[in-house]
Structures are given as structure tokens and as C-alpha cells.
Amino acid sequence: MENSRRKFLKIASYAIGGTLAAGVAAPIVGLAVHPWLEETVYGTEDFINIGKLDDFPIGVPKKTTITSSKIDAWNIFEGLVMGSVWVVRREDNTLNVFSTNCPHLGCGIDWGADVNQFLCPCHGGVFDVNGRKISGPSPRDLYAFDTKIENNNVLVRYRKFA
């Protein structure tokens, strides 16, 4: 009799204690994994306005800073410089917008006006005006961003390449 009562109390204690622990743990875990469920740091704009089409000369790459706003958890940072891009305007007014980071190891790429090529100062990567790799250690052509032109404004879908 006493033994079975004791056994029952043990099982009941485990069951209730387990329920209680689960009940406490559920919301805690739910909160802890928040960064898996939602992006906490992100830009507020999909396409970022980088200026008027006429600001960019035809055929000559122009380096332009990307300014936008960023949400960082509860904060909004406005007018933040996020990085820069090379903008190449072609004869037909279409645009190529390249990352300024070399696809090799991320060094900043320069435009060599004398040779009409993009040159990486670190390991000697060379790319043509259309971003195609000519020589050097880079595994690929320059990273390019989606662009569109709306009301004569140049919009770039900027993001960081890993």
C-alpha cells in the first residue's frame, strides 16, 4: 500500500515536474531562436537609388557610393554608406554595375583608365570593361548587381557578396 503510494507520488512528481519544465522552457526557447526566425539586421530598400542616369558618362566606369538605411534590431540608421559600386553606362543606355570587391579575395578593384581594364591591386586580377575576367587568380568574372532605371533614376539591388 505505502509502496504503491510512494511509487505513484514519484511518477506523478516526474510527470508534473516535466510538464512544468517544458512549460517554462517552451517560451524561453521560442525567444532564444528569434534570430533564426527573423532577420534582425537588414537594409530597408530593395533597389537603392544611386543617382540620375545622366550622372554617368558613357563607356567610362564611375565609382559610386551606396547610401541607404539599415535596420539593426530596434534601430534604424539612415543615410548610411553601405559600400560602393562601379557603374558602367553603355551606348544604348543600359548599365553594368559591378561590385568593387574582387571575386578572388575581396580586395578593392581600381579602374585603370590607361589600359581600359579593371585591375586588382592585390594579386593582379584583370577584368575588361564588361567585368569579364581576362587574367589573374579570380575564379570568375566581377560580381554584378541587378539594376533598373526608373524616371531617369538608376536603381541598384545592392548586397554584400560572401
Partner: peptide, 11 residues
Amino acid sequence: TGLETTKRKSM
């Protein structure tokens, strides 16, 4: 809603 849509895209 704009934020909602851009949220998933990291910078």
C-alpha cells in the same frame, strides 16, 4: 510591408 519583403534579404 516593404520592410517585410526586404527583411529576408541580407545586406
